[in-house]
Design a protein around this nucleic acid. Structure first.
Lengths: 121, 121
DNA sequence: GGTGGAAATGAAAATCATTTTCATTTGTGC
DNA sequence: GCACAAATGAAAATGATTTTCATTTCCACC
């Protein structure tokens, strides 16, 4: 068993609390941190076990890791340039909670993303 | 461009309208149908394009294909048993439209899923 | 300080779903 | 029959993730 490398967590934080393993790895590389991809995966895995981060899936199946407990937000992503805007999602929270109740689900989380073309593209 | 092989759709139906590409393929093999994995993928892809099935993700990232009605809807997925409920998402539509406008995005789509534990799990 | 074992690390190989390539087959209109 | 487009599938490529395994780092204890 391995514990999480603290630099992985701090990088995930710096990435806005929302990134894939590959992205965390590339980010650390770019910042000159010496770390292996394996360690990034292992650290994220262990953070998930410890319930410090959540894992969800992108549309293409890539796993994305998200800090839990953080103010929860969503993303508006440009299909053209990849630019991302964090947006507030109070409406979604309420919707998710309502739908869950209505169908007898508990312990629910959710994902929501909006994608389109930004003003520049 | 390729059109969907009708046997793929009928197999997906027989599988309960809910299966991964690999499962559809294995099922067809077991039933003695001669078909290539590539064709299964292509057919499912094309059914998705035609909005005859939609695609979601298992926890392990594998894509699962599911027959669906025509109305745009979202899913409430049980993390325990994989059970899925189609839910209505009018609130999301409005939210997405609003957020897009606010940030100058156009031509937007969105994804939203709720996951949790169903009453049985 | 040295020593032994457990935990952490990372490079490289393995895995697995999915996509791409490309040569072959099938179908259709002429 | 003939040409040509679409469909097919085997095999290779891709890309994320996991596994393997040899090496390094860390401690606790002497």
């Amino acid at each position: 068993m391995s514990r999480s490398n603290p630099r992985v967590l701090s990088t995930l934080e710096r990435a806005g609390g929302f990134a894939s393993a590959q992205e965390v790895y590339r980010l650390m590389q770019r910042e000159g941190e010496s770390i292996g991809l394996t360690t990034v995966y292992r650290s994220l895995q262990s953070l998930v076990n410890d319930k410090i981060v959540d894992v969800l899936r992108r549309d293409d199946g890539e796993a994305i890791y998200r800090l839990c407990g953080e103010a929860h937000h969503h993303h508006l992503v440009c299909k053209g340039c990849g630019d991302t805007v964090e947006i507030e999602g109070g409406a979604i929270e309420k919707w998710a909670k309502m739908m869950a109740e209505e169908h007898g689900f508990r312990d629910v989380g959710h994902t929501a993303e909006i994608f389109g073309l930004c003003a520049k593209c």
